[in-house]
Simulated assay, not measured.
Amino acid sequence: MPTAHDVDELIRRMYEAPPDSFVAARAAAVAQAREAGDRAATKRLAALRKPTVAAWVVNLLALRRPDLIDELVELSTALRDAQRGLDGAQLRQLSAQRRQVVSALVAQARELASGASVGGKLPLAEVEATLTAALAEPDIAAQVRTGRLVRAVSYAGFGEVPRPRLRLVTDEVDADAADDEGAADDEGADVAAEAAPDGTVSDIRIRAAEQRRRREFQERHRALARELSAAQAAESRADQQLERAESAERDAGHTVEDLDAELAELERRRAEAQADVARRKSARRDAEREAAAARRRVGDAQAALEDLEAHDPG
């Protein structure tokens, strides 16, 4: 009976091999475990799910280059620790470093997967999204480390959740304060214009116009920021809906794969049962022939005995 370590190694080989061979390998492993009478291994192997091509590429990286995944996790920890209190320059520097690390990992993953027949172009964008998510989320990094991903994952942002609030230019409170300040400036400018000598009225009017343009710019900026926020929220909802639809599609595909595997197993058992029926039918016919021959021998012996008794000289 295979040990738990043997089963682990078998599972590792299944997730390391191209996805096209997964279903057949799983069916063979389940049949072997069932034949060995290992119910725990049978149940464990039957529960495995076929990975997508993107998940398989990430699994290759985790299984063959675990040192790179360890470096990814270490960088992830450092980035989360450093995120609090970042200024714009530090954030840009860390973002550039993150992109470099992910790009290097994607290149390594591409190299590991090169030469394998996966029925099309490698989905490196999904690989990159998964590694970026692993860089941002410890739970996703832990899943990547197992080398048993079944689908690619993505992450909407970077950092801990909830993340520290970062201001790009200004926020609503600052903008409103700027409006109040601008209104006060306009009012002061009008009063000053009324009280100032004629020679300074033009300068005051120019400054007031500049302040109005600044307020208009700020109002437009806030409107665009709100529009961007709404668009990003809509995009996030659409991405989540797409992910749910893809997940449902994959689950349905897994169900079909499992049913195919079960059907193949039933077909095998049916063929064995038909062969057994044929053997038993042949055995029954042999027994019928032997029985008929035995009855003939009995009849011959009985007839001979009666003939002998009929000619008994006594």
Rank of each mutant, 00 (worst) to 15 (best):
A4Q: 12
H5E: 13
V7S: 01
E16G: 10
A24I: 12
A25P: 01
A25T: 04
A29W: 02
V30T: 06
V30C: 03
V30I: 13
E35A: 15
A40W: 15
A41F: 01
T42V: 04
L45V: 05
A47H: 09
L48W: 02
T52W: 02
A54L: 07
N59Y: 00
L60F: 04
R65A: 05
P66D: 02
I69H: 01
D70P: 03
D70K: 14
E71C: 04
E74R: 15
L75I: 02
T77L: 08
A78N: 11
R80V: 04
A89H: 11
A89V: 14
L94Q: 06
S95C: 01
R98I: 05
R98D: 01
R99E: 07
R99P: 02
V101L: 14
A109G: 01
E111S: 13
L122R: 02
P123N: 01
T130A: 00
A133G: 04
I140L: 03
A141F: 02
A142K: 14
Q143P: 00
Q143D: 13
R145Q: 13
G147M: 01
L149P: 01
V150G: 00
A156G: 10
A156L: 15
E160K: 14
R167M: 12
E172T: 13
V173L: 10
A175P: 02
A175M: 11
A175D: 07
D176N: 11
G182Y: 02
G182F: 05
A183R: 14
A184G: 07
G188M: 13
A189M: 00
D190W: 09
A193P: 00
T200F: 10
V201C: 01
I206Y: 07
A208C: 06
A209N: 11
R215A: 03
F217D: 05
A223L: 14
L224G: 02
A225L: 11
E227K: 10
S236M: 13
R237V: 11
D239T: 15
Q240E: 13
L242I: 08
E243N: 05
E246P: 01
S247V: 04
S247E: 15
H254G: 02
E257F: 07
L259G: 05
D260H: 10
E262A: 11
E262F: 11
A271M: 04
A275F: 04
K281L: 09
S282M: 07
S282Y: 08
R284K: 11
E288P: 03
R289W: 14
A291E: 07
A291M: 09
R295G: 02
Q302K: 10
E309V: 07
G314F: 14
